[in-house]
Nucleic acid binder design. Structure first.
Lengths: 199, 199
DNA sequence: GTCTATACTGGGATAGAC
DNA sequence: GTCTATCCCAGTATAGAC
């Protein structure tokens, strides 16, 4: 009795997704044709439609993958010191800044946000988890970590917002991820009043 | 000899653009059909193609309009006091936050950024002017306005970046423009070290 | 399971009447 | 100048060979 090889199946699916990520980043969702996805992965359209119901399903699968890893990574962060926890979360959220394709892919996602409710849901899940952790961390920092002048939830939202603004720039010419990450720390430190000398 | 009425012509063109702005904000660029643009303006497709070469030209005309007014407004700002100048620029850049369609339209624009080089050029012009004024202002603030720890050009870029991050959120449920503008002032004041008590 | 060839749909742009 | 009817093409998804 012949059975499918699940490992091979998963690997092929993954291969299609890898090519699709590049294609969507280069051309956005609507300007990427199914043909583009096929040639990026080196498969025929019949194969692609065997693994995914339609073009949008490929896009959603990429978002799901990103959400799963991001949420898992964020939940795995467990420092007792709130400041350390804050920087760990921020580091994870800015991890992809050095990948030039990440910014382009984000633009593709944002372009679908108005049209495709599923996109909003997936992004919302990531945001919810990130804000939850940031809010808890901010509560610690506000009670006994030196931070001042903020409501914990508002601060969480703003940290996210500033990081998002950074991703909009990461495809720009001459964008220097390391330097910008350092500036981000300066911005957050000052904004939250964390620096003892400036508290 | 019958001549065209330029006033009427301009008014009609403007009318088409007004409808188009709503349609693009609601559905994004690619999911808006020419039919949508026509019915939003109450004209036939023949009329629309009389005023604009193609669908993309309508989109570009909207961007041009936005750039023209924004650049003119920014250049008109002329306070001697650098801090006042900073807040005037920031107020102008955040002016549209209270318009829920503005955020949605921005998403439509960002979705085209990868594909359409003209979009990048127009946005680039706005950014260049904004950063130029912000950089000059920051130089004043850094030499004798109390700001510390920044390169003027980097600070200008970051102010813009943070404002852009804010626009990404302005379509969210429960977004309160006035409250967020107040928080933006807090963020910038602290980030730049403007507050004498915290300098 | 995978590929190639193709049918079908929908939207952008045009031609021509008024 | 404006509208309606229509052409044409691109792109998705499928059918059927291998």
């Amino acid at each position: 009795m012949r059975t499918v090889d699940p490992v091979r199946h998963a690997a092929r699916r993954r291969h299609i997704l890898e090519g699709a990520a590049v294609a969507f980043a280069e051309r956005g969702f609507d300007n990427t044709t199914v043909k583009d996805l096929c040639s990026a992965a080196g498969v025929g359209s019949g194969t692609l439609f065997h693994y995914f119901a339609d073009k949008r399903a490929v896009f959603h699968a990429l978002l799901d993958l990103d959400r799963d890893t991001t949420v898992a990574d964020l939940r795995a962060i467990a420092h007792d010191d709130p400041a350390q926890r804050l920087w760990a979360v921020v580091d994870r959220l800015t991890e992809d800044l050095s990948d030039p394709a990440a910014g382009a892919f984000m633009l593709a996602i944002l372009g679908q946000l108005t049209t495709d409710p599923r996109v909003g849901e997936i992004l919302g899940e990531i945001d919810r988890v990130a804000e939850e952790i940031l809010r808890d961390t901010m509560e610690d920092l506000l009670t006994n970590g030196g931070a001042t002048g903020w409501d914990a939830a508002d601060a969480a939202t703003w940290i996210r917002s500033i990081v998002d603004g950074l991703y909009l720039r990461c495809a720009d010419d001459g964008f220097d991820p390391a330097a910008e990450q350092a500036r981000l720390r300066l911005v957050l430190t000052r904004m939250l009043g964390l620096d003892p000398a400036c508290g």
